[in-house]
């Protein structure tokens, strides 16, 4: 039995990629060698996603793929076809900071800021899976990424603050449901 040559993308050709990027439908035709990190930065101008180790260890480039935190340096762009991708640029709430961003700003959960987008993305994923994480869970999740500046404690406090804010918000009745996902986020 032979495979269907129609399935093959030759080196010179582009792969069509359709995705939901920060809430908006996006299309790109990418060469096979394109990494998601490069696609986000160079094609879509999402420069809050930065590289560092370029091999999946440090977590600076973390984005959400179908809601899960992943290193965008360790994903080929062709693999996100049909997926939902969220970056730090999708965290804002209109002109205002999103709740996780606000918590990191207020609690000083950053210093040089280079790891911060990745940490905020990790936090977002954690709080979606567990609205009230305990310290051990926070430690485990934040333990995915390197921060060389803060010593982590103020990052973990930021996560706790974000959880409190989100809990308070979800308890508030009468919030305008239309504001979510409405704005152009890329």
């Amino acid at each position: 039995m032979s495979h269907d040559p129609d399935d093959e993308v030759p080196a010179g050709a582009a792969v069509p990629v359709d995705m939901i990027l920060n809430g908006a439908r996006r299309h790109a035709d990418v060469p096979t060698n394109t990494m998601l990190l490069s696609l986000l930065r160079n094609e879509f101008g999402l420069t809050g996603v930065r590289g560092s180790c370029e091999r999946g260890v440090c977590g600076v480039c973390t984005v959400l793929l179908d809601g899960k935190p992943v290193a965008s340096c360790s994903l080929f762009a062709f693999d996100v076809d049909g997926a939902t991708v969220e970056t730090i640029e999708g965290q804002r709430d209109g002109d205002a900071l999103g709740p996780v961003q606000q918590a990191f700003a207020e609690c000083g959960g950053f210093q040089c800021g280079y790891c911060t987008p990745g940490m905020i993305i990790l936090t977002t994923a954690l709080l979606r899976s567990e609205a009230k994480p305990n310290r051990d869970e926070i430690r485990r999740w934040i333990g995915s990424n390197i921060c060389r500046c803060t010593g982590y404690e103020m990052i973990m406090e930021s996560v706790e603050r974000a959880a409190e804010t989100l809990a308070a918000e979800s308890g508030e009745p009468g919030e305008d449901p239309d504001t979510e996902g409405e704005e152009e986020r890329s």
Partner: peptide
């Protein structure tokens, strides 16, 4: 009070040497 670079850094918009 939050630092003056808080907004640029939590939104990812801060420009580093890497971004030039």
């Amino acid at each position: 009070a939050p630092r003056r670079d808080a907004r640029a850094k939590v939104t990812g918009s801060a420009r580093y040497g890497y971004d030039v």
